[in-house]
Design a binder for these strands. Structure first.
Lengths: 218, 218, 218, 218
DNA sequence: TATGAATGAGTATTCATTCAT
DNA sequence: AATGAATGAATACTCATTCAT
C-alpha cells in the first residue's frame, strides 16, 4: 500500500515535471530554458529533477515520446478500421490536428531532434518517417480503392503534413479558434481536393449519403 | 576607386560569412553552431568575424533578412500586377515555394526569432505577420473578384503557409524533386480547391456546382 | 540478551559496510567510489549507511584504523619480545608485509590522509610517524646490540618501508605469489644486507669484514 | 619572428601552467585541487587554461608525461651503455631516485592512473610495466654476466622499485637530505646485497679495482 | 532501523566577446 | 584588417548529507 501510493506519487511528480518542462521548452526553446527554471516553477531544486530524469536531454525526449505515443495510438486505431483510404486520411488529419494543439503534440514538431542523443535522435527520426509513411499509405490506399483521385502520394503527404505541423507553431490555446474547430476544418479542407469525383447521376439515396460522408465537404 | 573596391571586397567577404553561417546554422542549429566553426570554414579566425558583424545574433538576423528581402521583392512584384486574387495567390505560392528551397529562404522558418534581440525579434515577427496578411489579402481579393470561392481566409492562409513552410524542413537540394517542380506542383495543388467555378455555362446550377466543388478546380 | 544480540548484529553490519567500502575504495579510489555503490553492493540504501557511520570520511578513517590496529598489535608483540634488533626488524618486516597483502593493510598506504578531517588526519600522520620510528628503533637497537651493522637508520628505514608499502600497490590476492611467500622473502632479503657479521672466527679481521660486508648476510 | 616568439611565449606559459598544476596536485591531491586555484596561482582566469589544455585530465596526463619522459631518457642512456647488469641497475637506481625527488618525477607515483581517460590510462600503465621490465632486465643481465648473484628478478625489482617510489612520498626539497645524497645512498645500498661475491683470493690489483667499481659498495 | 525524496554546495566546461598587438 | 590570448557569464551534473515517514 505505501509502495503503491509511493509509486503513484512518484509518477505524478514525474508527469508534473514533464508538463512543466514541455511548457517551458515550448515557451523559451530548449536551449534557453534552464533546468533551474523548470525546478523553480515546480518549487523544487534543480538536483531534485535528477530523481526522475537522468539528464535534460532525457526530459526532452520524454516530452516528445508522450506526443508520439498519442500519434501512435490514433494511427493504430485508424489502421484497425476498415474505412476507405479517404476516410482514413480524413480521420488522421483530424486527430493529428487536434494533437498539434496540445503541448506534447506541438513538441513533436517544435523540438529539434539534433538536441537529442544519437540513440534517441534515431528513434525520433524513425518515428517521423513512420508518420510520413502513414500519410502516404492512406493516400495510396485511397487511390487503390477509388476514394481518392490520382495524385502524387509523396508530395500530397508533404502538403498535408506541412499544414498540420504548422498548427503546432501558430495555435494558441486561448485563441478564437478552438482545437476542435481547427481539426474539423482541416479534416474537411485538406482532403476535399483529393476526393474522387462521385459517379455521376446516382439517383439512389444511401450511396449518395455515403458519398457525402466521404466527399461531403464539397 | 580604391575606396570602392575596398568596399566591394568587404561586402563580398561579408556575404561569404553569411553564406557560410546560414549553412552551418541550418545544418547544426543556431545554438550548436559556434562562431569558431563558421570562422574555420572560412579559413579565418573567430575575432575576424567581428569586423563584419557585431555579434552572432546579428549574423542570424542578417541571414533572416536576406531571405525576407527576397520575399518582400516578389510580394511587391505580385502586388504591382493587376492579376486577380487567385492568380496572385498562385504566383505567391510558387515564388514562396521556390524561396523555401534556398538556404536563406529556409532560414525564415527554421530560425527561431527568440534567438534575436528584442528589437530584431520584433522586426521578424512583424514581417511574418506581413506575409500572413499578404496570403489572406490575396484570398480575400480572390473572393471579392470572384476568382476564389468563399472560404475562411485566415485558416486557408494557415493551411497554405504551413504546406509551404514545411518545404523549408524537408527539401534537400540534391533530391529527386527539383525546387521548380515542387513550386509548380504546390502552386497548382494548393490553389485548385480554392478556384471558383469558371463563369461559363452558368445555367446548370446546383448539380454542376456540386461536381465542380469536388473536382472542379483541376 | 536481546540487547547484546542487537549490538552484535549491528557490529556485524558495521563490519560488512567496512569490508565493502575498503574494497571499493581500493578498487576505484576514494573519490570515484560513491556511497551509493557501497550501499548497492550491500543491498541496502545509501541513507542506511548513516546508521553506522556519520560520514564517508568516517568510513575511510575506520578502514584505516583497522589496518593500523593490526600493525599496532604486531608491533606491540614484537616490542614485548627480547629478541635482538635484527630479529625484531625481521619480524616486523614479515608481519608488515603480510599486512600489506590484506585490504585493510593496503588501505594504510593507498588512502590519502588529506581526505580525512583535520583531527583524523593528525591521528593518521602520528601513527605513520610511529611506524617509522619503530623501524628506526629496531635498527638502532640492532646496531647497539651488534646484530646490525652500522648504517643510517633513517634512510635504511625508508628503504625498507618503501619496499613494504609498495606491496600494497602491486600485490594481487589471486596472483602467483602468496602473501606468506612474499613476506618470507622480504623478511630475508630486506634484512640480509644489514646483518652484522656473525661473531664466529673473528680472527681474520679486515679481509673477512670486507667480504662479509658485501655478501655476508646470506 | 613574431611567430616564433609567440610560439615560445605560448610554450613557456604552457609549461608554467604545468609547473603550477603539478605542484598543486601534489600538495592537495588531484581531486581536491581545482582549476580555479591553478588559475589563481598563475593570476589568470580558469577558462584561460583551456587555451593550453583541453581538460583537467589532460593537464594531469601531461604532468605525468614529463616525468615519464625523463625516465625514458635516462633508461635509454643506460641501455645504450655496455656496462654490466649490476652497474646498469645501479645507474638506474641513482637516476630514478633523483627523478623521484622532482615534482614531475613524484607525480609518476603519486598520481592515480584511474583519474585519466581510458586511453591515457593505458599509456600510463604500459609505461609502468616498461619501467618494471627494465629493472628486471638489468637484474637478469647482471645474473647472466656474473655481476649479480642469483635472485628472483621479479621480487627483487619490486623491492628496489618500492624503495625508490617511496621517495616520491617522503622526500621534501628543503629537508636535511639532498636529492643527490639520497640517490647516492640508494644506489649504493639497494644494490650492495645483489653484487656477486668477487672471486676469492684475487691477487691482482686492477681486476680488484674493477671489482670495486662493479661491486664496490660491499 | 530503513527509505524515498530532496538539497546545497561545488566544479568542469563552453563560448561569445574583447583587447593588446 | 587580423590575430592570439584572455575573460566572464552561464549551466548541467554529481554526490554527500538530511529529513519526514
Amino acid at each position: 500500500m505505501p509502495f503503491e501510493s509511493r509509486r503513484r506519487a512518484r509518477d505524478e511528480k514525474r508527469d508534473a515535471v514533464l508538463r512543466t518542462a514541455v511548457q517551458l521548452f515550448l515557451e523559451q526553446g530548449y536551449h534557453r530554458a534552464t533546468l533551474n527554471e523548470v525546478a523553480e516553477r515546480l518549487n523544487i531544486t534543480k538536483p531534485a529533477l535528477y530523481n526522475y530524469f537522468r539528464s535534460k536531454e532525457e526530459i526532452l525526449f520524454e516530452c516528445w515520446a508522450i506526443g508520439q505515443e498519442q500519434v501512435d495510438d490514433f494511427i493504430a486505431e485508424i489502421n484497425a478500421s476498415d474505412d476507405n483510404g479517404l476516410v482514413k486520411l480524413r480521420r488522421l488529419v483530424r486527430a493529428y490536428a487536434e494533437n498539434m494543439a496540445t503541448d506534447y503534440g506541438a513538441s513533436l514538431v517544435r523540438f529539434d531532434p539534433r538536441d537529442l542523443s544519437e540513440k534517441n535522435s534515431r528513434i525520433v527520426r524513425a518515428a517521423k518517417r513512420g508518420i510520413d509513411r502513414t500519410f502516404r499509405k492512406y493516400i495510396a490506399e485511397g487511390m487503390a480503392d477509388g476514394s481518392i483521385k490520382p495524385c502524387d502520394p509523396k508530395m500530397t503527404a508533404f502538403m498535408i503534413a506541412g499544414s498540420l505541423n504548422w498548427i503546432g507553431h501558430w495555435f494558441q490555446p486561448g485563441g478564437e479558434l478552438s482545437a476542435e474547430a481547427i481539426a474539423g476544418e482541416f479534416a474537411l479542407r485538406l482532403t476535399e481536393g483529393l476526393a474522387a469525383r462521385p459517379a455521376r447521376k446516382r439517383a439512389a439515396a444511401a450511396p449518395a449519403k455515403r458519398r457525402r460522408a466521404g466527399g461531403g465537404s464539397r
